[in-house]
């Protein structure tokens, strides 16, 4: 383990065992997050981003889900071998998570203050009065007046609720914050505010951040490193600058091409043709082959593994690697 490493995920495999089929949601994902590092995890819906994140907290709904392989190490501790009781001490304390939809992620029958207080009293020995004080401080920290402690979620807007959820996740100074599409359900005008808030507080508490999103622009602004996920595998990863300047994987190229651009006069966006393969029935080779413009015979048979093409820049693609080696 490297000195600076906080989280390491190795060869993670998660499957959902349904009645008639087995959904292979995550298929051998490996990555590390260093202390204080901000990592963006990008991919389309169904790529396995949320499942990966939930695996870190061991919150995969089981059944039907199950981590079938891999190790997750947090601060040198193997989470796969940690008891459920100890996992509870990690959740919300060492690793916390902000969820996608603030409208449904707060209990409607509990005051927002009590929902913040809950996590504080679970992970500290403070007296009730102290936890209330701390919960109010957290509310103020995310820009909500402390006197709104006794109000219920339905009295808040979506953006405010997301602030409350941020307060909950930061209340115990976690070492790692997982933000699962924290702005997808919000108005565009609120998105920037919430992202800024997360970025500010992350800096303040010097946390590591795993930001799940499908917005490449957000990653460029807030992250040090990017990982691109496709059908349960990481297909490209590296420092944001390096990757954005020198995109290698045809899927990533497709993602960038499908962004609207201001500098070119076009009428239509360019989507990636086709669909992500059915996770019940993955092809043996590269899962992107039937959407890929550079497909070769080899791609259909053999699974490409991540290989380094530049400084810390990894790509899982035969085409990209060939190109790289012939160039250099």
């Amino acid at each position: 383990m490297r000195e600076n490493e906080l989280l390491s995920v190795e060869n993670l495999e998660v499957k959902y065992f349904l009645r008639r089929s087995t959904v292979k949601a995550v298929n051998g994902v490996s990555f590390t997050i260093n202390k204080g590092e901000r990592v963006g995890l990008v991919g389309e819906t169904g790529a396995g981003k949320t499942t990966t994140a939930l695996s870190i907290l061991r919150l995969i709904p089981e059944p039907p889900g199950k981590i079938t392989n891999g190790t997750i190490t947090l601060n040198g501790r193997n989470l796969m071998e940690t008891s459920e009781k100890d996992m509870r001490k990690i959740r919300g304390n060492d690793v916390s998570m902000i969820f996608q939809d603030p409208m449904t992620s707060l209990s409607p029958v509990m005051t927002v203050g009590d929902q913040i207080r809950e996590v504080i009293s679970l992970h500290s020995d403070m007296s009730k009065a102290q936890t209330i004080e701390r919960a109010k401080e957290m509310l103020e920290l995310v820009g909500i007046p402390g006197e709104r402690y006794g109000e219920y979620p339905h009295q808040f807007s979506g953006g405010m609720r997301q602030r409350v959820l941020i307060a909950i996740s930061l209340a115990c100074n976690p070492k790692l914050l997982i933000a699962d599409e924290p702005t997808s359900a919000l108005d565009v005008t609120i998105q920037a505010q919430v992202l800024e808030l997360i970025a500010d507080l992350r800096k303040k508490f010097n946390m590591s951040l795993l930001l799940i999103t499908h917005d490449l622009g957000v990653v460029a602004e807030t992250c040090d490193r990017i990982m691109i996920m496709y059908s349960g595998r990481i297909v490209e990863s590296g420092p944001v600058r390096t990757v954005y300047k020198n995109i290698q994987h045809p899927y990533t190229v497709g993602l960038f091409n499908s962004l609207p651009r201001l500098d070119i006069d076009t009428d239509r966006l360019e989507p990636i043709k086709g669909m992500m393969p059915d996770p019940n029935d993955l092809p043996p080779g590269c899962t992107f082959y039937d959407r890929c413009p550079y497909v070769m015979e080899r791609c259909k048979q053999e699974l490409p593994v991540l290989s380094e093409v530049g400084e810390g820049h990894f790509v899982a693609c035969f085409h990209a690697c060939n190109k790289e080696s012939s160039n250099g």
Partner: peptide, 10 residues
Amino acid sequence: DYVRTARAKG
């Protein structure tokens, strides 16, 4: 989702 939030709190 809020049940998941509660779990994520530990």
